[in-house]
Design a binder for these strands. Sequence first.
DNA 1: ATCAATAATTGCACACAGTGCATTTTTGCA
DNA 2: TGCAAAAATGCACTGTGTGCAATTATTGAT
Lengths: 213, 213
Amino acid sequence: MTTPTLRTPGLRDRKRAETRARIEDAAVSLVLRDGLEQTTVHAISELADVSPRTFFNYFDSKDGAILGIRNTAMVEEQVAEFLAQPPHRDAIEAVVALLLAIFDAPGGRLTIRKDRMELLQRHPELMASQFEQLTLTHGQIAETVAVILKRYGVSQSADAEDLTSIAGITLAMCGTAVRLAMSTLAQDHTHADTEQIQIRSVALVRATTGSIA
Amino acid sequence: MTTPTLRTPGLRDRKRAETRARIEDAAVSLVLRDGLEQTTVHAISELADVSPRTFFNYFDSKDGAILGIRNTAMVEEQVAEFLAQPPHRDAIEAVVALLLAIFDAPGGRLTIRKDRMELLQRHPELMASQFEQLTLTHGQIAETVAVILKRYGVSQSADAEDLTSIAGITLAMCGTAVRLAMSTLAQDHTHADTEQIQIRSVALVRATTGSIA
DNA sequence: ATCAATAATTGCACACAGTGCATTTTTGCA
DNA sequence: TGCAAAAATGCACTGTGTGCAATTATTGAT
C-alpha cells in the first residue's frame, strides 16, 4: 500500500505551487518598492530564485505575475466551488460574491491581496491586464452570471441573447463596484476584509441602479 | 492682414491628420488581413509609407494605431462639444451618447469604424487596450458622467465620493452595453448606424437595471 | 538502491515593441 | 530666397516574450 498520493497534491505539485507563490511575492514586493516600469522580469526572477525563462513557464506576462492571474482551469475550479455554496439573498449579492471568490488569492493570503490593491491604485495601467484576464475567462464568468440571474428568477421574459448581454452588463457593473470598493476601503487603512468589501460593493450597485433607473 | 490661419487648420496640420489616418488605415487593413500577432509595426509603417520611428511619433503603441486611440486633449475636445449639445431624454441616453461621441472616429468614416468592430470581435485582446484608453482618460469621462448624473437630477442624496463611484459604475455599465450593442449589430450585417447602436445600447441598460433591481 | 519515463528548469538565440538622441528633411513665413 | 520651427528619420539600445534543445529533478516500479 502506497501513501495517499491521491489526497495530498504530491511533492511535485507542492513545489510548483510554492515556486508560483514565490514569484508572485517577488513581483509584488519589487513593484511596490521600485515601481512598475522599474521592475524587470530579470529582477523578479532573481529574487524568486528562478531563471527568467522559468518565470515565463509560470506566467504569460510580467503583469500576470504581479496580479497573480489565474488560468482558465483555475477559474473553472473556483466557479464550481462557488456554485456549490449556499444561496445568497439576491442576484447582486451572488454576483459580487462570485467575483470576490475569483479574485481572492487561493490560500487566502491577506497580505498579498492588500498589496495588490495598493498596486492597482498606484499603477492604474495594471487594470488593463486585470481586465484582459476577465475577457479571457469572460466566457465562463459571464455564463455563470447568467446562471445566477436565472436562479434568482430575474428577466424571465428575456430571450437567450438578451440574457447573455444582461449578464455581461451585470458583470461589468459588479466588477467595477468591487474594484471601487476595494479602492476606497484600501485608502482607509482599516482591515478591509472580504465581508466589508462585499457589503460596500453591493451598496454601490444598489445605489447606482436606484439612481439611474 | 494674413490669411485666416486660425480658422483653417493649415497645411501642416492637414498633412499630419492625413498621415495619422493613413497609419490607422494601414493598421486596420493589415490586422484584418493577417491577424493581430502577424502584423508588425514595421509592416504597418511600410504600407503607410512612413518610417517605424515616425509610427511611434503618432501612436504610443501598435494597438493605439489599430484602435485609433485618441489622446487626452482630443477626448477633452469631444467632451466639450458633447456638453454643448441639446439635452437628452434621461441620464442613460446621455451617457450612451457621450460614449458614442468619444468612440466615433472624427470625420465619421463609417468603413473604418465597422472594420474596428470586426477586429474587436476577432481579437478580444484588443479590448484591454480599449479599456486602457478608458482608464487613462477615465478621469475626464467619469467626471463628465458625474456632471450628467447631476444634470438629470439623479442621486441628490449622494455625497461626493458616492457620486464618483456611481458615475464610474454607470460608465462601466453603459460602456459594456455599447460594446455589446456594436458587437451584435455588427454580426447582423445590417448597416449598424450610430442611431441603431444608441437605441440598442439604451435598451440593454434598461433591461439590466430592470432585471436586477 | 537502481533505473527508465516523465516533467521541470535552464541557456541560448531570436523577433518584436518601444524609447532617447542626434541628424536630416520639410514646412511656414518673412 | 532664406531662416526658424516642426516633422521625419536612422541608429543604438532596453526589455518582453517565445521556440528549441540540453540538462536536471521527480516519480513510480522493479
